[in-house]
Amino acid sequence: MGCSAGTFRVGDGIEHFLTDESGHVWVGHFDQGVLGDRLSEPGIRRWSSAGRPLWEYEAAPGDQPVLECYALNVDHRATWAYPYTDFPLLEVRDGRPTRVRTTPVRYAHGVVVHGGLVAFFGGPGDVHDRLVTGRLTASTVETLETTRLTRPDGTRLGSRRVVCRGPRLYLQEHPGTEWTLFDLARQ
Rank of each mutant, 00 (worst) to 15 (best):
Cys3Asn: 02
Ser4Thr: 07
Gly6Pro: 02
Phe8Gln: 00
Arg9Lys: 13
Val10Met: 00
Asp12Ile: 00
Ile14Pro: 00
Ile14Ser: 02
Phe17Arg: 08
Phe17Tyr: 10
Phe17Ile: 03
Leu18Gly: 07
Thr19Asn: 07
Thr19Phe: 10
Asp20His: 09
Asp20Met: 13
His24Gly: 12
Trp26Tyr: 07
Trp26Leu: 06
Trp26Asp: 04
Trp26Met: 06
Gly28Gln: 04
Asp31Ala: 09
Asp31Leu: 04
Gln32Phe: 13
Gly33Tyr: 00
Gly33Met: 01
Val34Asn: 03
Val34Trp: 02
Gly36Pro: 03
Gly36Ile: 03
Gly36His: 05
Leu39Val: 00
Glu41Met: 02
Pro42Glu: 01
Gly43Ile: 01
Gly43His: 01
Ile44Phe: 01
Ser48Leu: 07
Ser49Thr: 06
Ser49Pro: 03
Arg52Asp: 11
Pro53Tyr: 06
Glu56Asn: 04
Glu58Val: 09
Ala59Phe: 02
Ala59Thr: 01
Asp63Leu: 06
Asp63Tyr: 03
Leu67Ile: 04
Glu68Phe: 04
Cys69Ile: 03
Tyr70Val: 03
Leu72Val: 01
Asn73Ile: 03
Asn73Leu: 03
Val74Asn: 02
His76Trp: 07
His76Asp: 12
His76Ala: 10
His76Lys: 13
Arg77Val: 08
Arg77His: 09
Thr79Gln: 04
Trp80Asn: 09
Tyr82Pro: 03
Phe87Lys: 08
Leu90Arg: 11
Leu90Gly: 11
Glu91Gly: 09
Glu91Ile: 11
Glu91Ser: 10
Val92Phe: 11
Val92Ser: 07
Asp94Ser: 14
Arg96Gly: 03
Pro97Arg: 15
Pro97Gly: 12
Arg99Val: 13
Arg99Asp: 08
Val100Ala: 07
Arg101Asn: 09
Pro104Phe: 05
Val105Phe: 02
Arg106Tyr: 04
Tyr107Cys: 05
Gly110Asn: 05
Gly110Pro: 01
Gly110Cys: 05
Gly110Gln: 01
Gly110Val: 02
Val111Leu: 02
Val113Leu: 09
His114Lys: 08
Leu117Cys: 08
Ala119Asn: 07
His128Arg: 15
Leu131Cys: 09
Thr133Met: 07
Thr133Tyr: 07
Thr133Asn: 05
Thr133Trp: 07
Arg135Ile: 01
Leu136Ser: 07
Ala138Tyr: 02
Ala138Glu: 11
Ser139Tyr: 08
Val141Lys: 08
Val141Cys: 10
Val141Gly: 09
Thr143Arg: 13
Leu144Tyr: 04
Glu145Arg: 14
Arg148Tyr: 12
Thr150Glu: 12
Pro152Phe: 13
Asp153Ile: 09
Gly154Ser: 10
Gly154Thr: 10
Thr155Tyr: 12
Thr155Ser: 15
Ser159Ala: 15
Arg160Ser: 15
Arg160Met: 14
Arg161Gln: 13
Val163Glu: 06
Val163Pro: 02
Val163Thr: 12
Cys164Arg: 08
Arg165Asp: 14
Pro167Ala: 14
Leu169Phe: 09
Leu169Arg: 08
Leu171Val: 14
Leu171Cys: 14
Gln172Leu: 15
Gln172Ala: 15
Gln172Met: 15
His174Gln: 11
Gly176Glu: 09
Thr177Tyr: 09
Glu178Arg: 15
Trp179Pro: 04
Trp179Ser: 13
Trp179Lys: 12
Trp179Ala: 14
Thr180Trp: 06
Phe182Met: 10
Phe182His: 13
Asp183Pro: 03
Arg186Cys: 13
